[in-house]
């Protein structure tokens, strides 16, 4: 039996997935990066192997992806997360033609063809606006977890807006709104609207075509997905483990080698 691995080392987390010839996920693991991205990736890979009940020598081929993909010399190939997320999502939802991947440090929109082939893509600029980092900082300003921010946003009562998409200025605005006595759910919703509106612009750069899916850690934020669906006017498909789509896609590419 042959097994394949995908290792996705992003800006905040390292993800590893082991699959068999039928794309069945046998083991996966997600770890915080800490100070050493290579170690985090290898540790995530080790844990995924353990969960799959496999050893390193059982794996036929590895593909690495994510910001630290170059560091994995053990990998047969390094692919961008753009290609890997598209391949991963296409294996889960073959009908997807537009994909939005919102990670910790950057966001990407992709126009996807058959079998997860990327036809076009757009990325945010290097600032944190429109990325998971923005929500991370705002959640901290509200003393909420990421899940807590999503839950709070869904129970908003009053429509507030943040005028800035800049993380630094946005945080100042959140502090101001708190000092004005605005409720945490209303502020949380304003944060979600702010990032969602920026992401809609990113998706429009490649053109919106159904079906639409979302991957990356931010796809777990139900409030964000709801706001995006409202703005785009279509449902958004979210896989069960959106954070693993890059590593999953990398493993599928490894299988195809």
């Amino acid at each position: 039996m042959s097994y394949f691995a995908g290792i996705d080392v992003g800006s905040l987390t390292a993800k590893a997935v082991i699959i068999d010839r039928d794309n069945k996920i046998l083991g996966s693991h997600i770890l915080g990066i800490g100070q050493d991205s290579l170690k985090a990736g290898m540790d995530a890979y080790g844990e995924a192997l353990k969960k799959a009940g496999l050893k390193r020598e059982d794996v036929t081929s590895i593909v690495s992806t994510g910001y630290s993909r170059k560091r994995f010399t053990e990998a047969a190939m390094q692919k961008t997360e753009i290609s890997c997320h598209a391949r991963g999502i296409a294996a889960v939802f073959p009908s997807v033609r537009t994909l939005l991947d919102v990670g910790g440090q950057d966001s990407k929109s992709m126009k996807v063809g058959g079998e997860g082939r990327v036809l076009d893509f757009a990325m945010n600029d290097k600032c944190a606006a429109g990325t998971g980092r923005f929500v991370d900082v705002m959640a901290a300003a509200l003393s909420l977890t990421l899940d807590g921010l999503s839950d709070a946003a869904l129970s908003f009562k009053e429509e507030l807006s943040l005028s800035s998409t800049c993380t630094v200025f946005g945080e100042s605005e959140v502090v101001s709104l708190l000092s004005q006595g605005q409720s945490v759910p209303d502020i949380a919703w304003a944060i979600v609207k702010s990032i969602a509106d920026r992401l809609v612009s990113l998706v429009k750069r490649v053109g919106i075509e159904q079906d639409i899916a979302m991957s990356g850690g931010m796809a777990k934020n139900r409030a964000l997905v709801a706001r995006l669906e409202d703005r785009i006017g279509f449902d958004i498909l979210v896989p069960p483990e959106p954070q693993l789509m890059g590593a999953f896609g990398a493993a599928i590419i490894a299988k195809g080698r």
Binding site: Y67, I82, S83, R117, L119
Partner: peptide, 25 residues
């Protein structure tokens, strides 16, 4: 594809991802 740079600029990892993805497509 397009990318935006500035002077001075130290890290090119984001641009590496864009260029590599462009090559891949």
């Amino acid at each position: 594809m397009s990318f935006e740079v500035e002077l001075p600029m130290a890290g090119f990892e984001g641009i590496r991802t864009r260029l590599q993805a462009f090559k891949e497509i």
